[in-house]
Design a protein around this nucleic acid. Sequence first.
DNA 1: CTATAATTTTTCCGAAACGATAATTTTTGT
DNA 2: ACAAAAATTATCGTTTCGGAAAAATTATAG
Lengths: 208, 208
Amino acid sequence: MPVFDPEELGARIRTQRKKEGLTLAELSQRSGVAVSTLSKLENGQTTGSVETIFKIARAMRVLVDHIFPFAPAEMTNGRLLVTRRDGGERLAIEHYDYQLHAAGLIGKRMAPLHMAIKARTPPPIEEWSTHPGEEFAFVLCGLVELNTEHYAPVRIGAGESVYFDSIMKHCYVALSDEEPRLLSVCLSEAPSMKSAPENLFASAAPKP
Amino acid sequence: MPVFDPEELGARIRTQRKKEGLTLAELSQRSGVAVSTLSKLENGQTTGSVETIFKIARAMRVLVDHIFPFAPAEMTNGRLLVTRRDGGERLAIEHYDYQLHAAGLIGKRMAPLHMAIKARTPPPIEEWSTHPGEEFAFVLCGLVELNTEHYAPVRIGAGESVYFDSIMKHCYVALSDEEPRLLSVCLSEAPSMKSAPENLFASAAPKP
DNA sequence: CTATAATTTTTCCGAAACGATAATTTTTGT
DNA sequence: ACAAAAATTATCGTTTCGGAAAAATTATAG
């Protein structure tokens, strides 16, 4: 007795395939998964393997989670947490001062950080941040320079923002006389289970 | 040649298990998956079946996508887009003025909105926003009241924030004389397919 | 309405994953 | 350093999955 519903998975695959106007044979061609396997999957006659699911998702150009039956959404539908000026969770490191908002909310997918940029010159690249996912940074005041692995340094002033893949090594540097502050929202692929995800604050630098 | 990295899946399972302080034997007991299977999974020696993954996820009381490597990082790892003060995409509706940042970046999972709150009284509840996912709102200036379906109205001033499940009906209202501005970042659970970058799955697509 | 093609489902078998047990190695705690 | 606990590896029977081709169903053309 399966612990999840294979029919839902099958239905999603079929829906997506129809949407793309593909036949089983065509999808098989693209994905490298046999026609028979596709049929069995779509009809819930097998629970499938992770490998196969990935092949199918890739072939239809959808993210896996589109055809993958999730845990029900009602698990989290009524959370709300306010962070006051003196709230959240604070952390001061060499180059930045952090205030993590919504620190007490576990299972959230975004990590909102109110940070003050102390650094005036970029540290060695090994110390730059890198973490899977996406990052959005909005400058609240001052002038900030974002250094990244793949781009020329980018200057961002108050009211401006930058959105980037945070797996790129990156670091912020203050350019203005006043200490710049920015609001950074990091999206990790796996929702943070802890209030202060250490991987967010961890840099590429080796551990002592 | 697996199309995804079994070692990442294994690493996630192990990370989560350690976080919960479980041994393989205990997790086996709770999940109904044999110890040997767990070990092979964690060490990337098998690609695993969907059924097994679900059992494990359920046993650790996490959503499947916590341990499931849905979007390999190498798919998008070098994007970066700056939004200037006059950039982005603007939209004015009755109650708010929006500036969508990073508008030109397709496939992003967060939607950062710089918004000015014009409304001074809540509209009828049928007009409130509701969308699956999570929302983080940081007040830049002024005093804002967030009305939600399940909570008493919440007042948030400059430098404060709120994080909530955006499926709850919600609306923002201005309380201060000055028109409040806030930065809202919405996370949708399923990124829209229309915006899925071509290059994400290019390798699987046969050329016409 | 039939004939034919296209598509899907089913059948059969090899391949891979799973479970149980035991032996070996690694880690942990004292 | 030792003992205990935990994790890995090995083996093997069982179950499930995946692929090729046949069978059945559905769609299409004349």
